[in-house]
Amino acid sequence: MTRILLLGGTGDALRIARQLGSGHVYSLAGLGKVPEDLSCEVRVGGFGGSEGMTRYIESERIGLVIDATHPYAARISANAAKASGALRVPCWALRRAGWQPQAGDDWRMVGDWAELSAALAAFRRPLFTLGREPLAHLDEIPPQQFWTVRCLDAHEANPRARILAARGPFTLEGERALFDAEAFDVVVSKNSGGSATEAKLEVARERGLPVVMLRRPELPTVDREFADVAGLLEALRVLPQVARA
C-alpha cells in the first residue's frame, strides 16, 4: 500500500482526509479544532523542521506526501518539498488559485508587516483577517486606530482592539452585519483564495472600502500540483494500492 502523509489544516485538506483509510496520516500543526470522525490517523504537532520530517517520512514508510496546507504556510511547504526530495518520495501539492481584483476593488498590495503598517497609517478602524499575526503587534497600535482582529483562537482582552474568535465559512449576510456594527474603513487580508472567506471582499467592494492585501509567498516546486480537490482525489483514485475510507 502507498501510505500517504497529508499535511493539512484547511477545509480542502479535511475533504481529502475524509477519503483516506486507516493506513494514512493526516497531520495538523495544532491550531483549531482536531477532527474526530476520520478513518485515517490524525497527527497533531510539528516535525522539527525538514530534518524531523525526513525522519518521520522514513520511519513511517510514507510513500506519498500531499501538501494541502494554507497558501501562506510557506515554511511547512518548503520542509515538505525538501524532506520528500531527500528521500525521493513523491510530493504533491494542492495550490488553489488566489482571488483576483474585480471592477470596483481598491487593493493595496504589501509584502510584509512593515509595508502593511505603512499602508494602514491613514485609517482608523481596520479589520484584520490575517490569522494570529496581528496579535503579536497589539502594543504597536497607533493612537488613532482601533483594531478588530479575527482569528481562530480566543485572546485576552485589549483596550485598543477587539479579538474575534471565529472560523469560516463566513456568509455575505454575516459579513454585512459585522461591517455595519464595527464601521470598518479598511480590510486587511491574505490572498487565500477559495469561497470560505471571500464574502468580506464582496462587502468591501459594495462599500467602496480599500483592501490591504498581503502578497502570496513563493512556494517550492513539487512533483505534481493540483488546482482543486477534485483533481487531486481523481489522481489518488487511479494511484495503485491506496487504502480509502
Rank of each mutant, 00 (worst) to 15 (best):
H137M: 12
S27C: 09
P143S: 15
L31T: 14
V212T: 04
L233V: 13
P101R: 07
T197P: 01
G194I: 09
S22D: 10
M213E: 02
R176D: 09
I62P: 07
G131K: 11
Y56S: 00
A181M: 04
L130A: 00
A181W: 03
S192W: 02
P143N: 13
R207A: 01
N191K: 07
R176P: 03
P142G: 00
I76F: 03
R216C: 01
T10A: 04
W107N: 06
L130S: 12
L120W: 03
L201E: 06
A29S: 15
A227K: 11
E218A: 14
A230M: 11
R237Q: 15
R55T: 13
G193C: 14
G104N: 04
M213K: 08
M213D: 01
R124K: 10
E175F: 05
M53D: 09
V65D: 10
L164N: 09
G131M: 02
S59N: 07
R124M: 12
L219G: 02
Q144G: 12
T2K: 07
A86W: 07
T2Q: 07
E198M: 07
L38F: 10
L14I: 05
G11A: 03
L135Y: 13
F146R: 08
G231D: 09
T171Y: 02
R75H: 12
D228N: 10
G98P: 05
R75V: 14
E133A: 04
R55I: 08
D139H: 13
L64R: 11
F179W: 01
S117A: 13
A93Q: 15
Q144D: 15
I76E: 06
G48Y: 08
S77K: 01
W147Y: 07
G194W: 00
A157R: 11
T221N: 07
P101H: 01
P142I: 00
V188S: 02
E58V: 04
A122P: 08
S195W: 03
L87K: 02
P159G: 10
L94F: 13
F128T: 06
V212P: 00
E173Q: 14
F226M: 03
E218W: 10
L232Y: 06
V110M: 00
L236V: 12
W113E: 01
R216H: 03
A165P: 10
V238P: 08
D223W: 06
D67S: 09
L201H: 08
E173A: 15
L209E: 00
P90D: 01
A235H: 12
L236Y: 14
L239F: 14
L236F: 06
S189G: 05
G8T: 02
G104Q: 05
R167V: 15
S77W: 04
T2Y: 03
A119I: 01
T197Q: 06
Q102I: 14
E115D: 09
D185A: 00
P240R: 03
I76N: 03
A204L: 11
R132N: 13
F179S: 04
G168R: 08
R18T: 14
A199D: 08
L28R: 06
G85C: 04
V211K: 02
L20W: 10
A74N: 10
F146N: 05
E140V: 11
L214F: 04
A136I: 11
I57Y: 06
E36N: 09
R224K: 13
L6G: 09
R96N: 06
M213V: 14
E140Q: 13
E156F: 11
L20C: 12
M213Q: 02
I76V: 15
I16C: 10
R75T: 13
N79Y: 12
R15I: 09
Q19I: 04
W113L: 06
M53A: 10
